[in-house]
Simulated assay, not measured.
Amino acid sequence: MIIERLENRLCEYALLMRLHRPIGIYLLLWPTLWALWLAGNGQPPRGTTLVFIIGVALMRSAGCVMNDIADRKFDPHVARTRDRPLAAGRVSLGEAVGVASVLCLLAFALVLTQNALTVKLAFIGLALALTYPFMKRFHHFPQLHLGAAFGWGIPMAYAAITDTVPLVAWVLFAGNILWSAIYDTQYAMVDREDDLKIGVKSTAILFGEQDRRIIGYLQLAFIALLIGIGLLTGRGWLYYLACFVAAWFALYQQYLIHNRVPEDCFKAFLNNNGLGSVIFCGLLLDFLPASTP
């Protein structure tokens, strides 16, 4: 009986952390890996890479729990979120706070294995993660705040490997904010009608009928920044080929959101996992000749 109850609680905690939907981990992981490979010239330290990969999983999970805590009064009124453990009452507020606290403490313990600059930057990352869930109440750009939270691993990765945060790290960080605005607006297009009813804000609501066009402009700017990063870091043709393929991913997303069908907008959001992986594969292959003996 005790074991069965424990299994039930762990299952609910896993659902609370969205471990059954790892897309958020991937979208946080790809830019972190981009930064690790660029900062490490294609050979980032294995220990540092492992710390960041585990840290990404922990902080994304913590972010999901904190988001559900902040939205616990909104989620029961949204079709897509009403069955989440906290919204449905299967997990208490105290349990959710406890889970988030443990995850953050574990992530911080990992950060303590890195240098002082990385530890200092981690406090800013925690502040971004804690405040993001509340931004949709105050302004229409929570997607930009998400981009900063999801992309904070970029300056941290550079700090961990080089003990500094150069200009290229901030260019990459800016690119990730644009990318996050793209995919989270696509995500918000799924919930636009429910969000309008309950009064929360998003770029999808702000952009209105101009949503597809503005997403297109953001996609162009994002690809341009990726190319700029290639120029700043002296990347080769394999990286630029990856940028070209990423542009086709962006075009396909435009096709998916053309009629604003919620299911297709969600597919466009998920498609960004492929885009992020293509850029990483481009970096991996581009650095490979230099790293092979």
Results as ranks from 00 to 15, higher is better:
residue 68 D to M: 05
residue 68 D to G: 04
residue 69 I to C: 10
residue 69 I to T: 10
residue 69 I to K: 09
residue 70 A to N: 15
residue 70 A to V: 12
residue 70 A to S: 15
residue 70 A to G: 13
residue 70 A to E: 13
residue 70 A to I: 13
residue 70 A to P: 13
residue 71 D to G: 14
residue 72 R to A: 13
residue 72 R to P: 09
residue 72 R to L: 11
residue 73 K to V: 14
residue 73 K to G: 08
residue 73 K to C: 12
residue 73 K to F: 13
residue 74 F to E: 15
residue 75 D to L: 10
residue 75 D to V: 08
residue 76 P to W: 03
residue 76 P to N: 13
residue 76 P to K: 05
residue 76 P to C: 12
residue 77 H to G: 02
residue 79 A to K: 14
residue 79 A to M: 10
residue 79 A to R: 09
residue 79 A to S: 14
residue 80 R to E: 11
residue 80 R to P: 08
residue 81 T to L: 09
residue 81 T to E: 10
residue 81 T to P: 00
residue 81 T to H: 09
residue 82 R to L: 09
residue 82 R to I: 04
residue 83 D to I: 06
residue 83 D to C: 10
residue 83 D to H: 13
residue 83 D to A: 10
residue 84 R to M: 11
residue 85 P to R: 07
residue 85 P to H: 05
residue 85 P to D: 08
residue 86 L to Q: 03
residue 86 L to P: 02
residue 87 A to M: 08
residue 87 A to G: 08
residue 87 A to I: 02
residue 87 A to V: 04
residue 87 A to K: 05
residue 88 A to S: 15
residue 88 A to C: 08
residue 88 A to I: 00
residue 89 G to T: 00
residue 89 G to W: 00
residue 89 G to Q: 06
residue 90 R to F: 03
residue 90 R to I: 02
residue 90 R to A: 07
residue 90 R to C: 01
residue 90 R to P: 06
residue 90 R to E: 07
residue 90 R to K: 14
residue 90 R to T: 11
residue 91 V to Y: 01
residue 91 V to G: 02
residue 92 S to I: 03
residue 92 S to H: 05
residue 92 S to C: 08
residue 93 L to C: 08
residue 93 L to V: 12
residue 93 L to P: 05
residue 93 L to W: 04
residue 93 L to T: 11
residue 93 L to K: 07
residue 94 G to I: 03
residue 94 G to C: 07
residue 95 E to F: 00
residue 95 E to K: 01
residue 95 E to A: 04
residue 95 E to V: 02
residue 95 E to Y: 01
residue 95 E to H: 03
residue 96 A to N: 02
residue 97 V to H: 10
residue 97 V to T: 07
residue 97 V to L: 12
residue 97 V to E: 06
residue 97 V to W: 13
residue 98 G to Y: 02
residue 98 G to D: 09
residue 98 G to F: 06
residue 98 G to K: 06
residue 98 G to C: 07
residue 99 V to I: 10
residue 99 V to N: 00
residue 99 V to C: 04
residue 99 V to A: 06
residue 100 A to E: 00
residue 100 A to R: 02
residue 100 A to I: 01
residue 100 A to W: 01
residue 101 S to R: 07
residue 101 S to W: 12
residue 101 S to M: 15
residue 101 S to P: 09
residue 102 V to C: 09
residue 102 V to R: 02
residue 102 V to K: 03
residue 103 L to M: 02
residue 103 L to G: 04
residue 103 L to R: 01
residue 103 L to E: 04
residue 103 L to T: 05
